[in-house]
């Protein structure tokens, strides 16, 4: 089964966040709590951790991309 990881809404006014760092690559196995990527918005760096265990099968963006809140960033096959 595929689980999608979306851009979190970190603050009340947030519309987009910058994907400042990608910490897992397609093909990597992912455990719960592993940092998947980092988002920056309004001078806050947030390390986004995985709630799933599985294999990262898709990543739709590159480092430095601006991503809208709720847009799908990655897929994990669980």
């Amino acid at each position: 089964m595929k689980k999608t990881i979306t851009m979190p809404k970190l603050s009340a006014n947030m519309e987009t966040g910058v994907l400042v760092s990608i910490n897992k690559q397609v093909g990597d196995s992912v455990k719960k709590g592993d940092v998947l990527f980092e988002v920056e918005t309004e001078k806050v760096v947030s390390e986004v951790e995985s709630d799933e265990e599985g294999i990262l099968v898709k990543f739709f963006f590159k480092e430095g991309d601006s991503v809208k809140v709720d847009e799908v960033i990655a897929e994990i096959e669980v």
């Binding site: 970190l10 709590g33 940092v35 309004e42 001078k43 806050v44 760096v45 947030s46 390390e47 951790e49």
Partner: peptide
């Protein structure tokens, strides 16, 4: 703005954050 402190419009303080877990 969101994260600054100013006196008469001039900045005296800027701030930033990180969150993890």
């Amino acid at each position: 703005r969101t994260s600054d402190i100013a006196i008469e419009g001039k900045k005296i303080s800027g701030s930033a954050q990180t969150v993890k877990g």
